[in-house]
Design a binder for these strands. Structure first.
Length: 560
RNA sequence: UGCCCGAUGGUGUAAUUGGCAACACGUCUGACUCUGAAUCAGAAGAGUCCAGGUUCGACCCCUGGUCGGGCAACCA
């Protein structure tokens, strides 16, 4: 499915940079981007922005985009994450160039470059304790203090570094530091650490290595090895750029050189996007897993019924810039509705039922009525829905004492049942507490859909399900992603305070029309007037569990 | 009291080499409809953080402020 026409935008700032680079024929006009996740969690909607950007730019300029796992910290990483990341990117509809790449594939090369650095007197082994190194680095407003090991002879550094590699020292005993500038106003330039000792099994290299490069000694080099031209990352790496360039200066020969460009990460209202916090939700069993339908992860959205198209449209719409932003979830939901409105077949379900008895309809009769699958799509066809003497309608669709502008059912009022007849309310029964128990109506045979009297105008049309032929299911209704308050401005508060304690309980019985059970798992549908839904992949024993993807806009509800 | 970013309608993004601020969402009207959805038509809403300067002319360039974000992990 193509993007909506009107969405063609003018250039964003990254496109402008790229076009300029092409004009100047930098890197022979080649465009090669990359998406470099650390496999330490599942991808979330924020990553989707980065994915769409990197892969999208490559498409747009006939370039390539790599998938590279930035796996330089074995303590947090796992193959489970590698697999989920690949799956999510593919599901979004993007294809990376060649095989997935791994920073760990370059460990040998990185090590050799580090030796070269030492030989040139630009790096040294520091065996001071972590706390001391950190203290000596100083504070942003004051210069740091040089390490006593800073001027260690090259030979000694070489020897020590080799021993580090060979596992002769315990974890944390010493590090390799770049010799740059201890009084730089940029903290990252104050002799940054390039290698640390970590006796930790790596998910890919196993126990082959016990020293691991830091981000700053791995990222730019990896970009260089892969021939990346535009290394696009989020704003928090802006301060690393001088170091990125410094690291490249040490290895680049010739004219090809990657370039780092930063953009503002996505913030979504009502949505927690910190990987650390999401991990906490998973580990604390607040949710059923990374793909819990309430999670703002790509897999969570998938399970909830979001489509890849809708997420891509969303990413396209929010644009890219350098200023901090908070995007309202309603824009995401708009994108979802926009797509689902076109493709989701319409079905009927009643969430909060009240029984309607059609007094002049024959007992035991079951009439199969053809109902449009999608009135906006002529090719969508029809389905048969059973109509019977007793039906359920939504409790909200009947009012004893209707206010002005209420178009649905009430005493002596007429209403059309979708795909069926016009009915008129003649009477109703209340229980001891005053709740409506049953509503008695008559139907007008001539008004059957497509029939002779079908053109008669009534103000309202409501949905219904046969009381005797309908099927029972469970629906999960989720409101915002799982926060009932906007976390913006509450950064430091414990985010669990915002976790809606009722969100898992929003599980209701509902009655659905039989044709719903024909849907394949995870297919999308629209329950008319209720929203878009999808069948959960984990249907309970015999009972369908249905997630609400997103509610329909409801201007009547807003009135109230 | 350091360094690096940023600042345009409610929100997000635009504005060819400086030429009287555009688009989308949202909001509000109205029309239509066998979904109070969708669709269609229309409207309101910013004078571009502030103060100077350069210029015939500045959102755009310069200077100085203000506000917001980031930076002191052997994380990425």
């Amino acid at each position: 499915m193509e993007f909506p026409e009107e969405e063609k935008k003018s250039l964003n700032f990254i496109e402008a940079i790229i076009e300029e680079d092409i004009t100047e024929n930098k890197n022979e006009g080649r465009i090669h981007t990359r998406f470099p996740p650390e496999p330490n969690g599942y991808l979330h909607i924020g990553h989707a922005k980065s994915i769409c950007l990197n892969f999208g730019l490559a498409d747009e300029y006939n370039g390539l985009c790599n998938l590279r796992f930035d796996d330089t910290n074995p303590t947090k990483e796992d193959v489970e994450y590698v697999d989920s990341i690949k799956e999510d990117i593919s599901w979004l509809g993007f294809e990376w160039d060649g095989e997935p790449k791994y920073a760990s594939d370059y460990f040998e090369q990185l090590y050799e470059w580090a030796i070269k650095l030492i030989e040139e007197g630009k790096a040294y082994v520091d065996e001071q304790p972590q706390e001391l190194i950190s203290e000596q680095r100083g504070i942003p407003t004051r210069p740091g203090i040089e390490s006593v090991y800073r001027n260690r002879p090259v030979e000694e550094n070489l020897e020590l570094f080799a021993k580090m590699k060979n596992g002769e020292f315990p974890t944390g005993a010493m590090v390799l530091r770049a010799k740059i500038n201890m009084s730089s106003p940029n903290m990252h330039m104050r002799d940054p650490i390039m290698y640390r000792i970590l006796h930790q099994t790596h998910h890919r290299t196993g126990d082959k290595w016990c020293i691991y490069p830091m981000y700053d000694w791995a990222h730019g080099q990896s970009d260089f090895i892969e021939g990346i031209t535009h290394s696009i990352c989020t704003l928090e790496f802006e301060i690393h750029r001088p170091l990125y360039d410094w690291a490249l200066d040490q290895i680049v020969e010739g004219s090809y050189r990657p370039r780092q460009i930063e953009f503002a990460r996505l913030n979504l209202s009502y949505t927690v996007m910190s990987k650390r916090k999401l991990l906490e939700l998973v580990q604390g069993k607040y949710v059923s897993g990374w793909d819990d339908p309430r999670m703002p992860t790509i897999s969570g959205f998938r399970r909830r019924g979001y489509t890849p198209e809708s997420i891509r449209w969303f990413a396209d719409r929010i644009g890219v810039a350098k200023r901090d932003n908070v995007i309202d979830v309603s824009l995401l939901e708009f994108s979802v509705r926009e797509h689902l409105n076109k493709v989701a077949p319409r079905k009927m379900a009643v969430l909060n039922p009240v029984k309607v008895i059609i007094t002049n309809y024959p007992e035991n009769e079951i009439e199969q009525l053809p109902v449009n699958n999608n009135p906006n799509d002529e090719n969508a066809g029809t389905r048969m829905v059973p109509f019977t003497k007793e039906i359920f309608i939504e409790r909200d669709d009947f009012m004893e004492d209707p206010p002005r502008k209420f178009f649905r059912l009430g005493p002596d009022r007429e209403v059309r049942l979708i795909g069926a007849y016009i009915i008129k309310c003649e009477d109703y029964k209340k229980d001891a507490d005053g709740n409506i128990e049953e509503i008695y109506c008559t139907y007008d045979v001539d008004t059957k859909s497509g029939g002779t009297g079908a053109n008669r105008k009534v103000k309202g049309t409501i949905h219904w399900v046969s009381a005797t032929e309908g099927v029972n299911a469970e629906v999960r209704l989720y409101d915002r992603l799982f926060l009932d308050e906007d976390p913006a401005g509450h950064k430091d508060k414990d985010f669990k305070e915002f976790l809606n304690p009722d969100s898992l309980k929003v599980l209701k019985d509902c009655i659905i029309e039989p044709s719903v059970t024909d849907l394949n798992n995870c297919d999308n549908m629209q329950f008319q007037r209720l929203g878009y839904f999808s069948i959960d992949k984990e249907s309970a024993e015999g009972k369908l569990i249905i997630n609400r993807t997103v509610p329909l806009r409801d201007s009547w509800a807003k009135r109230k």
